[in-house]
């Protein structure tokens, strides 16, 4: 590591470098007296520099280096991590309780399968207050296709509030429970909607999100509908597209971990030529398929909608059916026994 990384005034840094102390390891091997004489600074200044250098190189005793966590602590954190319900209990079940926070989840499927519906549903559900088992957070909705319908969001929000009222009504009979404070229009107010019209705007917005979320700490979900749209056109240089996309993916990962929020990327499908036949696959290619933590594929099975967990580091592959009703996402009417483990 280089000396220039230490938080020093530029004059002292210049003196250090011109005296030959360019790396931290060279500083850590001298005494403060020697350093003071070589660099021509006071001994107390030299002492401060040594202290800083030691802080940077040697960290706490428990972990090898700064910022690393041990898996035991992480296990406890993981268990306490909230999930955002999808309002469809079968789907929640295979997702291990819902969309997991601090993960990037990609959801893809053919047009009309209900990707945008899931997006709107999640942006409403994230606001369910803590008393009702939700997160009480806010949502960021990044719309690249222009498919977000505010009337639909209102409809789902009304249904969500009704459900909560029904729940309190039930609870009132048995326990003393709080009234539903939330109104459908509050729910709409807490969805931050960004309309993005080109891929440059999309990149700029992703770069800006860090700042925006630091200012609005209770944002708990970021939905991008869809990540693909602008990247499937206007791009001649596919290698450049891969670079830009993988950098964007890393930024989403960073956001998800830093603020412990869920990132949901909606993706379109494309045909892919494998083993002699054309098959449907999620768009943006092979490199992109590595850039999400979890991947859920939506597909038609007969006239029923199904979701399949294609990739997840901690969940087993499984599929579940769901329907899209006027009230939002719900269990498939035909059965609730259809959770199929694979």
């Amino acid at each position: 590591m280089e000396t220039s990384r230490l938080p020093l005034s530029s004059s002292i840094r210049g003196k250090l470098i011109s005296a030959g102390y360019t790396s931290l390891s060279s500083i850590s091997s001298v005494s403060s007296t020697d350093l003071a004489r070589d660099v021509n600074i006071t001994e107390s200044e030299a002492f401060e520099i040594l202290k800083m250098a030691n802080q940077v190189t040697c960290s706490g005793s428990s972990s090898l280096i700064n910022g690393a966590k041990n898996a035991w602590d992480m296990l406890n954190e993981e268990e306490a991590l909230p999930h955002i319900t999808t309002s469809c209990s079968d789907l929640d079940k295979i997702l291990g309780g819902g969309i997991s926070c601090s993960d990037v989840t990609e959801i893809g499927g053919v047009p009309g399968i209900g990707k945008t519906q899931i997006g709107i549903q999640l942006s409403v559900n994230v606001q369910i207050p803590r008393e009702f088992g939700g997160l009480g957070g806010k949502a960021i909705y990044i719309d690249t296709e222009g498919s977000f319908m505010v009337e639909r969001a209102l409809q789902i929000a009304e249904a969500c509030v009704e459900d909560m009222e029904e729940y309190t009504g039930y609870m009132h009979k048995h326990f003393k429970a709080s009234q539903v404070q939330m109104k459908p229009k509050d729910i709409l107010e807490n969805i931050f909607y960004f309309r993005v019209c080109s891929y440059t705007e999309q990149i700029a917005l992703v770069n800006h999100l860090d700042k925006f979320i630091s200012e609005n700490k209770d944002v708990k979900v970021v939905i991008v509908d869809s990540i693909t749209f602008h990247f499937r056109q206007d791009f001649d240089d596919l290698a450049q597209r891969t670079r830009v996309l993988s950098e964007m993916a890393l930024k989403f990962m960073k956001l998800a971990k830093k603020f412990s929020l869920a990132v949901v990327l909606l993706n379109q499908v494309t045909t892919k030529y494998t083993e002699g036949s054309f098959q449907l696959a999620l768009a943006l290619g092979d490199s992109w398929s590595h850039s999400c933590t979890n991947r859920v594929i939506l597909y038609w099975n007969g006239d029923e909608r199904y979701a399949y967990i294609d990739k997840s580091p901690s969940l087993p592959s499984a599929s579940a059916s769901y329907t899209v009703t006027s009230r939002g996402l719900r269990n498939s009417s035909s059965s609730s026994k259809r959770v199929k483990m694979m």
């Binding site: 898996a71 296990l75 268990e79 601090s102 999400c292 580091p313």
Partner: peptide
């Protein structure tokens, strides 16, 4: 001891357990 560098938020202590 094991040092795990994770770039895709895919480290899951629960799965390791």
């Amino acid at each position: 001891s094991v040092f795990y560098i994770d770039t895709g938020n895919s480290f899951s202590a629960r799965r390791i357990a």
